[in-house]
Amino acid sequence: MKKNGVNMIKISAKNVDVFYGKKQALFNINLEIEENQVTALIGPSGCGKSTFLRCLNRMNDVIDICKVQGEIVINDFNINDKGCDVVRLREKIGMVFQKPNPFPKTLYENISYGPTIHGMAQSKQEMDEIVETSLKKAALWEEVKDRLHEPGTGLSGGQQQRLCIARAISVQPEVILMDEPCSALDPIATAQIEELIDELKKEHTIIIVTHSMAQAARVSQNTGFFHLGELIEHGSTDKIFKNPENNKTQDYITGRFG
């Protein structure tokens, strides 16, 4: 959504600190994520980019020793507030992981699971429509429409990942978080996911963590560079890869690190 030619802010992180026990993993992160854009988070292993991604749908809650401070405002609501309904939050903010992780169920059940628990379909027909639309949006429908009742784990890696994306979008999330979604895929399957990301951004806001600089450059409009738990630089992808402000960013993206 644009207002006066400027993209609206979908997510706003303010002074976010994250601790694993005594160890601080993120230091005072301030980052605004634009709506209907792809934001790539890059940085060396252990820099905190995945930790930050997991803050956005409160995935860190499942880690006992993990403590998150600061505000993460989505739709004018701080998701770190006590009153936040985490189940509703994760309906609005879907996630796709590094390794495709379909449920050990049929393709159909993989997609219908979310809409069922969120009570999104009143009839079998409505559910069929949700399954079909989700698979179409994930560019998988043509390949699987005749085998919807076969197990999801029987698909190829790239197809499984698209199935996971279809599962994520079946509950119509506003935001999709992707944690290295292509690192287990071959170049063709990677290109299909990247094309999909480009399509999905019309209806969703996407945040992708990637180790591939080339992928960040290809798929994103904005890029944030994390290093040792700090957000070093954030800006348009175009600027980051042509003329970054910070020397650390430059050294990292040009392969001069360490």
């Binding site: 080339a214 450059a217 980051i240 890869f241 042509k242 003329n243 960013t249 430059q250 993206i253 040009t254």
Partner: peptide, 9 residues
């Protein structure tokens, strides 16, 4: 090499 940033320039 797909140069980036200063290397690209």
């Amino acid at each position: 090499r797909q140069p980036m940033a200063i290397d690209l320039r």
